[in-house]
Every structure is written in structure tokens, then in C-alpha cells.
């Protein structure tokens, strides 16, 4: 029996027992912080000083770091190389023939990578500590339509779902002799055999699921019965309000800085 396609790791401590909305608001606040900060050092500090300790507190540090760096490594590498050479700037660090590697490009690549890292880390923290059905329930209880809540949740589930299905497809192709180990070219070639079945099976599932949901009354208007009891507290409500204020303030400051004449 293989594990279910979800990243959620149940733990009795850390972020896991908190109300799903608290975790969602925390994620959005960290994301707005990453977008607002213009210095790569602060962006990386957000990851190292906020997200990593939260992952440690929630006892998910291992998978959190593993997923973060696995997903980011290819982007980081290509950003640092491409932006370093082709971003406009004057501070040349070194030259390769006619190409000049510039400090401005490196700075931009680090800022962009940092934002990606924080965005990914914040989303991972939410996915690793929150059951998606609970998040959906929390959103619909706050008045969001069931359809929109469903779209939000399925979007968040795309990563683990694709990961799980991708592994199954790779297994099937490897069992027929496809070589997926070795050089970068060989690995890239293997992707060709992954994408068509991944897309096809996802489309089939989406279609089948839409029909099945409708046939079971998903689109029926009116309140739905909730099974799980989501515990909330006054403290969490205050934290959510503070986070919302902080997120708005950070975005406001950033917009003001952009709009200010130089």
C-alpha cells in the first residue's frame, strides 16, 4: 500500500493543531513579506528565521528542507547563470569571452530565488501541517462558496498529486526499461515519457471527479454538514488580525517605495 497523495504530516505539536485559517493567513503574510522586501538578505532571513524554526517546531524540518531545495535547485542554478550574464548592469565580476557576469544580475537572481524559496517554503509549511479537507471546511464556514474553496484546495493539492502520479508513471516506464538515472540529458529525455500520461490521466481524473461531485450534490446550494470540529481560539483570532495588518502594511510600504520619485 503506497502512501496517500498528500504532503500532510500529522503531529501533535507545532502548527498542526492550529486552526487552518491561522495557518493560511500566516502563509499569506509571509508571502507578502517576501514580495515586499527588496534586499535578498532579508528575504533569505525570512526563510531562515521564520519558516525554518516553524518547520522545526512542527517536527517537519526534514521533509520541509528536502522539498524546498529539491524544487528550487534547478531554478536557482539557471537564474544565477542567466541573470548574471544577461541582466543589465555595470559591475562586472568576471568575464567569459564576450560575456560579462555582473553583480546586478547576481543580486537580482538572489532576490528572485529568495522570493521563490520563501513562497515555496510558506506553501509547503501550509501543506505539510494542514489537512486539505479541514482547510476547505474552514473556508466554507467563513462564507466562501464551496466551488471556490474546492478550487483553492485542489490547486494546493496539485503538487503532492502530481508528485505521486509522476512517481507511479516513472515506475511504470522504468519497469519497461526506461533509463532515468545518469546524465542530465538522459533525465531530460525521460520527462518526455512522463508528461503525456501525466496530463492524460490528470484530465481523465478531473473530468471523472467533476461528474462524480455533481452526481453527489456538490453544486447544491445551501449549507453542508461538517464532520470535523475545527477548534479556534481568541488568541488565534488576534494573531490572524495582526498578520493581516502586517501583510497590508508591508504591501503598502512596498507600493509607496515603488511609487516614490527617485
Amino acid at each position: 500500500m503506497s502512501p496517500a497523495p498528500s504532503l500532510y504530516l500529522p503531529q501533535p505539536t507545532g502548527l498542526q493543531p492550529l486552526h487552518p485559517l491561522t495557518k493560511l493567513v500566516l502563509t499569506l503574510t509571509v508571502l507578502s513579506g517576501a514580495i515586499s522586501l527588496a534586499d535578498p538578505r532579508y528575504v533569505f532571513a525570512t526563510y531562515g528565521l521564520i519558516l525554518v524554526p516553524l518547520a522545526g517546531w512542527s517536527r517537519i524540518l526534514g521533509p520541509f528542507l528536502r522539498y524546498s531545495f529539491r524544487a528550487l535547485a534547478p531554478f536557482l542554478l539557471s537564474l544565477v547563470i542567466i541573470q548574471g550574464f544577461f541582466y543589465p548592469g555595470e559591475l562586472v565580476i568576471f568575464s567569459l569571452g564576450p560575456f560579462h557576469y555582473k553583480a546586478e544580475g547576481l543580486g537580482f537572481a538572489l532576490l528572485f530565488s529568495g522570493r521563490l524559496l520563501v513562497g515555496l517554503g510558506a506553501s509547503l509549511l501550509l501543506l505539510l501541517t494542514t489537512r486539505m479537507d479541514h482547510l476547505m471546511q474552514a473556508l466554507t464556514q467563513r462564507g466562501l462558496s464551496a466551488q471556490i474553496a474546492y478550487i483553492v484546495v485542489t490547486t494546493l493539492q496539485i503538487i503532492p498529486r502530481f508528485q505521486s502520479r509522476g512517481e507511479a508513471i516513472f515506475d511504470a516506464q522504468r519497469a519497461r526499461g526506461l533509463k532515468t538515472e545518469g546524465s542530465l540529458l538522459r533525465r531530460a529525455r525521460a520527462l518526455f515519457f512522463l508528461v503525456p500520461p501525466l496530463l492524460f490521466s490528470s484530465l481523465m481524473e478531473t473530468d471523472a471527479r467533476a461528474v462524480a461531485l455533481e452526481a453527489r450534490g456538490f453544486g447544491k446550494p445551501g449549507p453542508k454538514t461538517s464532520w470535523a470540529v475545527l477548534t479556534d481560539s481568541g488568541g488565534q483570532r488576534i494573531v490572524r488580525a495582526l498578520c493581516a495588518v502586517a501583510a497590508l502594511a508591508m504591501i503598502g510600504i512596498r507600493l509607496a517605495a515603488v511609487a516614490r520619485p527617485r
Binding site: A168, L178, F192
Partner: peptide, 22 residues
């Protein structure tokens, strides 16, 4: 040995056909 080499010795027909046809 990697799975790609074992493919010459062990054939595996998986449960879900949509997870392999390309």
C-alpha cells in the same frame, strides 16, 4: 542493478493503464 536493467528479466503490468501510455 537499476530497474531499467531488471526490465529484461521482470515484466510488470501495473494496475492503472493511464499511468504508462504515452
Amino acid at each position: 542493478h537499476p530497474t531499467s536493467e531488471f526490465a529484461a528479466r521482470v515484466g510488470y503490468v501495473f494496475q492503472n493503464p493511464d499511468e504508462q501510455l504515452f
